[in-house]
Computed example of a mutant assay.
Amino acid sequence: MTYWTLAALVLVAALWWLGDVILPFIMGGAIAYFLDPFADRLEKLGLSRVMSTIVIALLAVLLFVVLSLAIVPTLVRQLGQLVALAPDLLNSFQTFLTERFPELVQNSVVNDTLSSIGDAIKSRGGELASTLLSSAMTVVNLAVVIVVVPVVAFYMLMDWDRMVAKIDGWLPRDHAPTIRQIAKDIDRVLSGFVRGQVTVCLILGTFYAIALMLAGLDFGLLVGSIAGALTFIPYIGAIIGGTLAIGLALFQFWGDWMQIGIVAAIFAAGQFLEGNIVTPKLVGDSVGLHPLWLLFALSAFGTLFGFLGMLVAVPVAAVIGVVARFLIDQYLHGALYRGVVESEPPDTPTGFINEETGAVTGVVAKENES
């Protein structure tokens, strides 16, 4: 408990006073941890650790170039177009309610609410979108992302196995097996959730984006990206993405029910793939990181430490969960839970001896039989 408490205090102090300094190292370490299994597989194919790291770095540079030139500008443009189109969407929805349910809209607060929402989006929507983009680039400085983080990730990925072996050599010998088991449990949770869930988000986001663009939806790339990014919260990504996609499809394809049904079928197919194929294969059922606990950790660490806190929220949540389960297991096997009578053998054997036959019955008889 002393060492865990000291480690927690050092972590909090580092996040509080050295947040901007350690941000690129945290990001680089997260990238190296995420890519370590790929480097191990390349080593099994015959490449050295250095060559494996170089191959992964070249692929990462290629992916970065594709994202920078093709996908990110399109997402920004579609976000601006969607913000500009939002008042028209609300007006169409208001007209629909007026025609279908006049008693609901007329002489009620619904009409005023929709009108005020449309005016607010029209006046401040563009400002909000630009503020979000500019603040994101302020938090994650472009120079840090382009220069420092890739360098840190490259060297940490190249030396990952040696760093793990060195840390293992520092463990106290009496407690090394227990600490290794806790570390394996933490790695299982992180690899199962972080690597698995990020991969699930990428797969489903790509599927939704490509399928919606092929279906002819104007904002297919943006809607697919939003649905994929929110997939780590069960059902939320599909509900928000599906509602947004079907709403846009109703606005764009009104009267063409076949086209609207195709958009709805895309999200139904995505949910089937996620629940039956992708998530069970990549994440599994034994991760042990509940979505509510994850949301709480993201909110708490994000409020306390900003963007850096959100980066470390998932690993810290995994560590706390594993250590808490370990402590609970120790408690359930200890004298405090089981009681002194159950945890310690009795001083005198219980049972009695039959005077006629000399047979021993009770607890002692069972022990003698065994």
Rank of each mutant, 00 (worst) to 15 (best):
T231N: 11
A153I: 04
A143L: 11
M158H: 13
S299C: 08
A211I: 01
A297P: 03
A70T: 11
C201M: 15
R173A: 14
I353S: 06
G309Y: 02
G224K: 04
A264Q: 08
L23G: 09
I31A: 15
K122D: 14
A7V: 04
L298I: 14
Q181N: 14
E99L: 11
P87T: 05
G224A: 09
V364F: 09
L45E: 11
G270H: 02
A30R: 06
V341P: 00
M156H: 03
G306N: 13
W254L: 08
F232S: 12
E356W: 03
I226P: 01
S299A: 15
G288A: 08
P345L: 12
Y331N: 02
A335N: 06
L212Q: 12
G169N: 12
T231C: 12
V319R: 00
L6Q: 07
R195E: 07
N276C: 03
V66F: 14
L97K: 02
L6Y: 12
S115F: 10
G192Q: 07
V65K: 06
W17N: 05
F154H: 08
W257S: 10
L332A: 06
G261F: 09
A264C: 07
M137I: 00
I262E: 12
Q81G: 06
L248P: 01
L171E: 06
F96V: 01
M1S: 14
G241D: 01
I167C: 08
D112E: 10
S130F: 02
W16Q: 13
F25R: 05
T138V: 03
N354A: 12
V65D: 13
R325T: 09
N354G: 10
A14S: 13
V145W: 09
G255R: 10
L23T: 14
L63C: 08
Q330C: 11
V322Q: 11
V152C: 06
K366W: 03
